[in-house]
Design a protein around this nucleic acid. Structure first.
Length: 510
RNA sequence: GGAGCGUUGGUCAAGGGGUUAAGACACCUCCCUUUCACGGAGGAAUCACGGGUUCGAUUCCCGUACGCUCUACCA
């Protein structure tokens, strides 16, 4: 049978796309690819107040960066248009009405003040949050308690109302979750959820069922936090007469805070100093910039990789997976049931592995942009890529390239004289003077030659070659880092090498 | 309070009636490198607790504890 997988999103009140969201899409994507099925990503705009301008485009951009949506497939394209919830309002209303007509749902006219009153009135120690359920609904203002005439009068005069599902008493509702196996609930314990809101928009519960049916969805993955509302959805599929077509569900484990417990949130990122969003996001209300993995220097391959293995493992020792390998090896059966704490150190390790694994040419454009932002212009692409490949094993983030490679293209602003000074003396200064002169007339400019010359000159001047290597490095790169010095000298060229040594000598003098 | 779900080192985790309970990140020691990394060798550290079942439970069952999620006209 043809599989049709869908992911549904609601932009959070502040917007942004967090780790859990991307992972959900990723698992969906892998599953869809495995079964050569369709893959649908939808974004809710159910509540205009919550809908954040730009969120849709932003989410699409993030997913594109991750390689999870092809460019030609806009999130809301496809044969079942319209896709936006606001444009489907009438469809939901029609099914809600059907449920009322069949006696599975009812009108409720209670105002929010009345609901609040009910919650206070029936609140007890044993039951701190009373629910609008099979017992309490008899005490509220709804079409079950009001006479038919009164209900009709209220409806014709346009009184605000919602449609609530009428949960049956003591029925066992069960489903087979692709990850957890059979899960069951007693209907008595669940409340009469609102299906259609007073503004005529559906709640998630109604929308998800109606859309999944109409759009012929066969598989739906969502976060574990949805498990408690599964009985409502099962009942809806049943009451609407579609139970045979109910998609298979998989409830994914949560991504937890690195410290303590609980769902990972944006706040944790701020607090602990790591991103939780895929890409930079500016909260339109506060103008606050929330950092994203991409801008912080993550490779999409690494990002997907680390997300994939946070809650899934193929049983082998392999940890680095390309998208192709993930498609081949991913299986829902091996997804964990328990949540996993996010570990930023490990995340950086994944990125490091990918930086090393990929040829620099695959990310040189991004790095070039970073150089540009730091005021360093690159003119020779081939040379740039060569340098990146030379230093990449020292970089955990793309942004690390700036420190690790900037000195190849522009002389260090300032050198770490403090590291040389203690052992500096006139003999060494003299040595470098001579060395510069000899470099000027060296025949072939290559690392081996530059090194041999240094050693010979040192021996000649009665200095241990090792003692001048660190000063040389610091003069050339500015600090104690970077690849082997002689290779650096070879790449930056004769004139630049000599210039930097002379500059270094001057700095040490002063 | 209730319901659902979960619990292998600090973290991610493999495994699953009999094992020296893999591996990775982080941490520590050493080697390599007269820089910083990479790399290599080694170290410390784990089956939440209590009852069963069993010749034998980390593994199966039941409790307990703990944690999380939900308990909105949010998703």
């Amino acid at each position: 049978m043809e599989k049709k997988v869908r992911v549904r999103f609601a932009p959070s009140p502040t917007g942004g796309l967090h780790l859990g969201g991307v992972r959900t899409v990723l698992y969906n994507y892998l599953f869809a690819r495995q079964h050569s099925g369709d893959f649908v990503v939808r974004i809710e705009d159910t509540d205009q107040n919550r809908y954040v301008a730009g969120a849709e485009q932003y989410i699409q951009d993030c997913l594109r960066w991750c390689g999870l949506v092809p460019d030609e497939s806009p999130l809301h394209g496809g044969p079942f248009a319209p896709y936006r919830q606001s444009e489907r309002k009438e469809i939901y209303r029609q099914y809600a009405q059907q449920l009322v007509d069949q006696g599975h749902a009812y009108y409720a006219f209670d105002s929010s003040a009345e609901l609040e009153e009910m919650r206070v009135k029936y609140k007890t120690e044993e039951n701190p949050s009373p629910q609008y359920n099979h017992t309490l609904r008899a005490k509220m203002r709804n079409s079950l308690t009001l006479g038919q005439q009164e209900v009709e009068a209220l409806l014709t005069e346009g009184a605000p109302y919602v449609i609530r599902i009428k949960m049956p008493d003591n029925e066992t509702l069960s489903m087979v979750d692709l990850i957890r196996g059979e899960v069951s609930f007693n209907s008595t314990l669940v409340d009469d959820k609102v299906l259609l809101k007073a503004d005529g928009m559906p709640t998630y519960h109604l929308a998800v069922v109606v859309d999944d049916y109409l759009m012929k969805i066969t598989h739906a993955f969502r976060g574990e936090e949805w498990l408690p509302s599964a009985p409502v959805h099962i009942l809806l599929w049943k009451y609407l007469g579609w139970i045979e077509d109910m998609p298979q569900w998989a409830h994914l484990p949560l991504i937890l805070k690195p410290d303590g417990h609980g769902k990972l949130s944006k706040r944790d990122g701020d607090r602990l100093g790591f991103p939780v969003f895929a890409m930079n996001w500016v909260d339109p209300k506060t103008n606050e910039l929330i950092a994203g993995f991409r801008e912080l220097g993550f490779l999409p391959q690494a990002f997907c990789n680390l997300l994939a293995v946070l809650g899934w493992n193929d049983g082998s020792e392999q940890e680095i997976f390309s998208m192709e390998e993930l498609i081949e090896k991913f299986s829902l059966e091996k997804v964990h049931k328990g949540g996993a704490k996010f570990d930023y150190d490990k995340a950086k390790w994944f990125n490091h592995e990918w930086i090393k694994k990929l040829p620099a040419s695959q990310y040189s454009n991004e790095v070039m942009e970073l150089f540009h932002k730091n005021g360093i212009e690159i003119t020779d692409d081939a040379n740039f890529i060569r340098v990146l490949d030379l230093v990449k094993e020292r970089c955990f983030l793309l942004t690390d390239f700036v420190q690790q490679a900037a000195f190849f293209f522009s002389a260090p602003q300032q050198i770490d004289v403090a590291s040389i000074q203690p052992k500096w003396n006139a003999d060494k200064a003299f040595f470098f003077d001579i060395y510069c002169e000899k470099l000027t007339v060296i025949e072939e400019w290559n690392a081996a030659g530059i090194e041999t010359l240094l050693k010979e000159t040192a021996v000649e001047k009665n200095i241990k070659p090792g003692e001048v290597q660190l000063p040389l490095r610091i003069m050339l790169v500015g600090g104690k880092f970077g690849p082997p010095v002689f290779e650096i000298a070879e790449i930056i060229g004769k004139a630049e090498t000599i210039a930097r040594i002379r500059k270094g000598l001057a700095d040490l003098d002063g």
